[in-house]
Amino acid sequence: MENPSRNEIKVILDTAKTIAVVGLSPDPSRTSYIVSQAMQRAGYRIIPVNPMTDTVLGEKSYGCLTEIPEKVDIVNVFRRSEFLEEIADDFIKIESAVFWSQLNVVDENVFKRLTDAGYTVIMDRCIKVEHAILK
């Protein structure tokens, strides 16, 4: 598994506008909230994906990726590695371009499946850290 280069990640972050965040918690002390709030403040549209809440960060929350009625540039995953296979299935259905899982969230089979299908996949990296380094 090899993530895209920092230059490629910079292009992704520079061109993306909408980030669907799977597992975005409404709890301000959780990492998913802190990271998503920082990305929202940086100008990205955040779309929460969490069936247990109605809104997060002032945005309507959806139960799963396939319920989102608009185009998503990046799917950022804050769920445990064992859920990546199921999330990848929905990711393929919505035709987003970039599948991104946060630190310590890795599934080699999902990585290979999605990259073999032509998608950009970034695993085990924090989108907030990458954005801060590359801006």
Rank of each mutant, 00 (worst) to 15 (best):
P51L: 05
R30M: 11
T18C: 10
V98H: 05
G63N: 06
T31C: 10
V77C: 09
F83I: 04
D14V: 00
I133F: 08
M52E: 10
R125C: 03
E85F: 14
P4I: 00
L65V: 02
I12K: 04
A88S: 11
F111P: 01
N3S: 00
T53V: 14
S101W: 12
T18D: 11
P48F: 07
G43N: 02
M123R: 00
I94W: 00
F78V: 12
S29I: 03
S101L: 10
V35F: 11
P48Y: 06
K17V: 00
K71E: 15
K60P: 13
T31V: 13
I74Q: 11
R125I: 07
K93T: 05
V105D: 12
D89I: 03
T18F: 14
T53M: 06
E67Y: 14
A16S: 13
M1H: 05
R6P: 06
I92H: 02
M123E: 06
N3R: 00
E85A: 10
G118I: 03
K60C: 11
R45E: 15
D90V: 02
S61P: 05
E67L: 08
P4H: 01
N50W: 00
E8S: 07
L134N: 02
K17D: 09
L65P: 02
T53C: 13
E70N: 04
K112R: 13
E2K: 05
S5N: 03
S29G: 03
R113P: 08
E108M: 01
I92L: 12
V77D: 06
A42D: 07
R80A: 15
T55A: 15
R113F: 08
N50D: 04
E108Y: 13
P28H: 14
P48N: 08
V21L: 13
D107H: 13
W100T: 09
K10G: 12
G118M: 06
D73F: 15
P4W: 00
T31Y: 14
E8G: 07
T53E: 14
C64Y: 05
I68V: 13
L134E: 09
V22S: 09
E59Q: 10
M123G: 00
V49H: 06
E2H: 01
L134M: 09
E108D: 11
P48T: 05
P26Q: 00
D124G: 11
T18N: 12
T55V: 12
M39E: 08
N104A: 12
D14M: 01
N50L: 04
S81I: 07
L57I: 04
M39L: 15
P28I: 04
A16F: 01
L13N: 06
E67V: 04
S36K: 12
G118A: 06
D90F: 01
I87L: 05
T115K: 14
A97E: 15
V106Y: 15
E95T: 01
D116F: 13
Q102G: 09
C64M: 06
W100C: 08
A20N: 12
D54Q: 11
A97R: 08
T15N: 07
H131A: 02
K135R: 11
L114N: 04
G23Y: 15
E108P: 02
R80Q: 15
M1A: 08
S29W: 00
T53Q: 07
P48S: 05
R80E: 15
A38P: 01
E108V: 01
D54T: 02
E82L: 07
A20W: 09
I46T: 02
I74Y: 15
V72E: 13
V105W: 00
V35W: 09
V77A: 03
E130T: 02
Y62V: 02
